[in-house]
């Protein structure tokens, strides 16, 4: 019984290991690109739209609305990153009902990689919207002593992000596997359905949390500028 798809190794050459996580990630990637290509192959501005285009437009406009609600900003800057996070995690979890498929999100290497991407993306977006200096200045507020706590906060939430997703997906797969050996007939199906639902919820939570972190980084800066603007007004 494998807890992680990392341990299923298809091919190895020195330090390069082609395990199930990477292979199934490629599979999900390929599927996503294929769907995208199908959806955007014959784009039409006016009706009648193709079914694929319609479906993808629905998904994307929904994501845009969500991002707009959370960030109160133009969603198109964040959409490629957050949207891809959601689509990748969602599809990976969804495909877990396919026999033989090992969801790449069940590997802590994958979830850690995604969390690391968010960890890097938060300051990246913050700097992009506020500038290098003003972004990092909020780490030393209200005083220099707060710096370690800020850094610990950043790290811990990244870890939490990674472990939450991994734990949920892995446990789903695990419970299904355990129940299969205990009560092989009906219960695993129910648990599997539950697992599918939990997988979608996790995808949503991951994407929303990433958005919130990014938004908070940008917003912290905005409040900063507003406060300073107010101060300068009072002073003036």
């Amino acid at each position: 019984m494998n807890i992680s798809p990392d341990s299923i190794i298809f091919w190895q050459w020195g330090p390069i290991t082609l395990n199930a996580t990477i292979v199934f990630t490629w599979g999900v990637m390929g599927l996503l690109v294929l769907i995208s290509w199908l959806a955007t192959r014959k784009l039409a501005v006016e009706p009648a739209l193709s079914r694929w285009q319609m479906a993808m437009e629905t998904v994307i406009s929904y994501m845009r609305d969500q991002i707009r609600e959370l960030t109160h900003r133009r969603p198109d800057d964040y959409l490629p990153f957050i949207g891809t996070l959601f689509l990748f995690i969602s599809l990976s979890n969804f495909l877990s009902f396919v026999p033989g498929f090992q969801p790449p999100t069940g590997s802590i290497s994958t979830t850690a990689a995604l969390a690391a991407c968010v960890f890097i993306a938060v300051p990246a977006f913050g700097i992009a919207s506020a500038g290098f200096k003003s972004y990092f200045s909020h780490y030393v507020r209200p005083s220099m002593f707060m710096l370690p706590f800020h850094i610990i906060g950043e790290l811990s939430r990244t870890l939490a992000l990674a472990v939450r997703l991994f734990g949920n997906v892995m446990s789903g797969t695990m419970i299904a596997g355990i129940l299969l050996s205990v009560a092989p007939l009906f219960l695993p199906v129910v648990m599997h359905a539950l697992g599918l639902m939990i997988g979608q919820i996790q995808a949503y939570i991951f994407a929303v949390l990433a958005t919130v972190y990014i938004a908070s980084a940008s917003r912290a800066h905005e409040e900063e500028t507003k406060r300073s603007a107010r101060k300068s007004e009072k002073g003036g």
Partner: peptide, 12 residues
């Protein structure tokens, strides 16, 4: 797994 971790970042 470090390699998988890096590979997944790149993949992503």
């Amino acid at each position: 797994d470090l390699f998988t971790f890096v590979a997944q970042i790149i993949n992503f």
